[in-house]
Write a protein that binds this DNA or RNA. Structure first.
Lengths: 321, 321
DNA sequence: CTGAAAGCGCTTACAG
DNA sequence: CTGAAAGCGCTTACAG
């Protein structure tokens, strides 16, 4: 057994002839080494957890694909989990990942990261926060400047001549949504508008159906008081709004301009191609993975707060062609 | 240690007082039971693998969310893996899942399932094939009647008056693509057309970019010989075509009608709302999970081949309004 | 260079 | 009802 292990892990220590015999036996017996036993012995696994807010959102699956690829380069595998923007589920998955003894966790936290952080720190599991800034120096994080993104998006709408602007966000992902709204208000102030005039529409979830609901809410306003432009907290919402508004005879962008956030692949293919704030998804994946690997490699490691910027992608839905 | 284990697993065997002391110690020491050791001892894990062809395709993430939910009901967790329609990656993941000693695997195989099946059978890992019929009685499968789906889709196009029809499929997922094409030809024959007139366009991958390429290929044909309708092997391709064609001034559905397959959520929100063949994704998830759990529960179990039907969803892209 | 031994953290009979 | 012991399948010193 010891020799088999050596063949598998340190072949150079074994006499070629013995090695061949062992290798043949492995083949004949269809032996598959137990990763479970291996991990128990090693005290650590060779997998990393990625916990996202919504696997059905293309933004997060693109992120997942990037992370998976970068982990594979390091010989690690990814366990993908989906909190569905729900704290209880997040908690359950953090537990599950801890029980699986993952080497580390990449997590897009539901709301404030304090719970996740303390839960992982208690268990000595390295973590890199994604899409959220770590509140202190106890963890790495890679986030997007959402205030800046919100500001750019709304400045663009103002540039197009809009003055009555809505922000469509909602429950869930409080931090990102709040920051994007904050940026929106800054853009209004920059333009000499009253930031409290920003019309805020709340949706149940940051998903397609939420966008349709938001559109219905806006349609209850008399046309004269209705916003002429809306900045949506993500593309799923924007696409839902686009569909509902179009079906109700509201022309995009003439009656209402729209801009989303994420620039998922379907934004460009939408009924009216959707303007959006593109997040640097692959940079995010790469940076987060690298930071985690640096931390788990045990080299002396300073926790870092990396902040990336998003980029304005102008398409027809915001009226600039 | 034995008592701790009893508190955790069979609390009724422990005297309440002792139990309380143990529970308090667990809390104070922040003890997290090692799932790894547990699995080694039990000889089986509490997780199931789901291997899909493309995590960035909403069809598969919807499937994944369903499976995850149904597994959770049974106290199991899901390890999601993505073969990216690549046999080598599929092989690597099957290995990984075997090493993790998952209870079973749900797999949408890349091409023919023979390799996956023998690989899993050798290792005694229960498997349910998804989206592919098992070639023999050695495994369960849940698939969609793709021949029927292709036939329905093309019959619909013919009903709309089209005679010059393209099928856009390609490399990857040979079986599904071939069946859908076969159904398309049957529909042509049913209508008294020559099935060999079906214009076949091959794309590199069944993704958005593939659809754009396909559109470019069709645009090289003189307008008089160009098909007036296209049936796409999935919605991602259809959406890519829709985008490219629109940008080139080809009107959908007037110059070219389109129908996709899967009915992902973005189909309805497309530039021109996309007709599609809706696959019963949640039924698929439920049935596959149930079959796997039945098999792993050890009850005597007959392998079943379940075949579900897809449903025609008519929207504007196919010209019927 | 090889093989026997210890130990990773659990669970489950088993003796007390 | 409790606690000591064996064993799951590995890896890694260690003795030979």
């Amino acid at each position: 057994m010891g020799t088999v292990s050596n063949v598998l892990n340190r072949a150079e220590l074994v006499k070629p002839e013995t090695r061949q015999r062992v290798e043949q036996a492995i083949r004949e017996l269809r032996f598959v080494r137990s990763e479970v036993a291996r991990q128990l012995r090693a005290g650590r696994s060779r997998s990393v957890g990625l916990l996202v807010l919504d696997v059905t959102n293309p933004f997060f699956t693109d992120l997942a694909r990037g992370v998976e690829e970068f982990l594979a380069e390091a010989g690690l595998s990814m366990i993908l989990a989906d909190s569905n923007d729900d704290v209880a589920r997040e908690d359950r998955y953090i537990n599950l990942l801890a029980e699986q003894r993952v080497q580390g966790v990449l997590v897009v936290p539901v709301g404030r990261p304090a719970g996740v952080l303390s839960s992982l720190r208690e268990r000595d599991i390295p973590v890199v926060l994604i899409d959220t800034k770590a509140p202190d120096r106890t963890a790495c994080s890679v986030s997007i400047d959402d205030v800046g993104g919100g500001r750019t998006a709304v400045a663009h709408l103002i540039d197009q001549g809009h003055r009555r602007i809505a922000f469509v966000g909602g429950k869930g992902r409080e931090r990102q949504v709040a920051d994007r709204a904050k940026g929106a208000r800054i853009a209004m102030r920059d333009a000499g508008l009253d930031p409290t005039d920003l019309i805020t529409v709340r949706v149940e979830a940051l998903r397609f159906a939420g966008g349709r609901d938001a559109a219905k809410q806006l349609l209850t306003l008399p046309a004269g008081r209705r916003p002429t432009a809306a900045f949506c907290a993500n593309d799923l919402i924007a696409l839902g709004m686009l569909q509902e508004l179009s079906q109700s005879g509201v022309a995009i962008p003439d009656d209402m301009a729209l801009i989303g956030y994420d620039d998922i692949i379907f934004a460009a293919a939408a009924a009216v191609p959707l303007s959006s704030m593109r997040q640097p998804c692959q940079d995010l994946a790469r940076t987060a993975t690298d930071l985690l690997l640096e931390e788990t490699s045990g080299a002396n490691h300073d926790h870092q707060q990396v902040v990336l910027a998003s980029e304005l992608i102008v398409r027809r839905s915001s009226g600039a062609d």
